[in-house]
Amino acid sequence: MKIPRTPWLLVVAAGFWAAVQLLRLVGFNDYYLFIANLSLVYVILAVSLNLINGIIGQFSLGHMGFAAVGAYVSGSITTLIFKLSPNVAAHYPGFVLALVAGGVAAALVGVAIGFPTLRLKGDYLAIVTLGFGEIIRTVFNNIDAVGGPRGLLGIPKFSTFTVILAFALITVAVIRNIAESAHGRNMIAIRENELAADLVGIDTTGYKVKAFALGAFFAGIGGGLYAHLLQIAHPTQFGFIYSVQVLIMVYAGGVGSLTGSVLAAFALTILTQLLKSGLSSLKSLTGLPIGGDWYMVLYALLLILIMLYRTEGLMGTREAKLMVIPEEDDK
């Protein structure tokens, strides 16, 4: 008789959900809820980027380009439905389908970009993906049908805490299960030594394209949720600097560690908000001119310090227990 393993990931997610519901009763206000939601969106973006940059060891700098595709595609679909009949509750199935459509569109873009570029390595790949990310953004900036430089406005606020949490859970679970499977082993081998991976019979190009597509898919979902949280999809939300922010999360958490990405997504989202509000209250208190971009200065400094003094990030490549699937015969 086999006892099924406890699904710890699900337990933790359910616990988090219940805790937030309870806290809502005792003054966990909308601002805090927004930060929780934003953190979860960044969990999706960081974990999906970690599949590309950490697990299979490529270097993408254009992750927000994929998020933009997801945001615009899903946003266009839901605004259309919403215009036809503005009954929010009835539209959740449509919303989920729109998100998936956005993810699929992002994955297709990922494949289209991946085929010509993935034979490039390291810093070259970084620059080319950066370029593609910017091209995607420029394209949206020039399509009038989605608002051009004004952005796509009037997106319904469908991204509730429960929906975002559910998608974050699915993203983490799927990427973890792949990373912990034979496919994940093949990807890690590619990261460790691409030539040797090739010469044990791994289709390295095929895997890179698949990983890129899968990472782009979840980034597209993340982008869709983001747009339905802020109720707008705007070209500036998906600029290079935001791709770097997600990159910082991946490296701060430990490249190759999904646990690290989840923790860093929460920690850095909260830290950003603290810095912003901390600096602005310090500004009004002391009259010092320290608003605006100072939090980005600190952010940049953080990235440099991580690289100089803790290159492996918070977790290195280690994973928390609940992120590891034990093998059948070792107990």
């Binding site: 600097i241 770097v244 971009d293 980005m296 200065v297 400094l301 990235l303 690289m307 290159t311």
Partner: peptide, 29 residues
């Protein structure tokens, strides 16, 4: 300090330096 570390560490640090300079200039009153 990163000269003999993996190449990507330097690249990421360079991105950080770039951000630092830009936002420092932007933030300085």
């Amino acid at each position: 300090p990163l000269r003999y570390k993996p190449k990507l560490s330097s690249l990421i640090t360079a991105i950080g330096v770039s951000m630092l300079i830009e936002y420092l200039f932007s933030a300085l009153p």
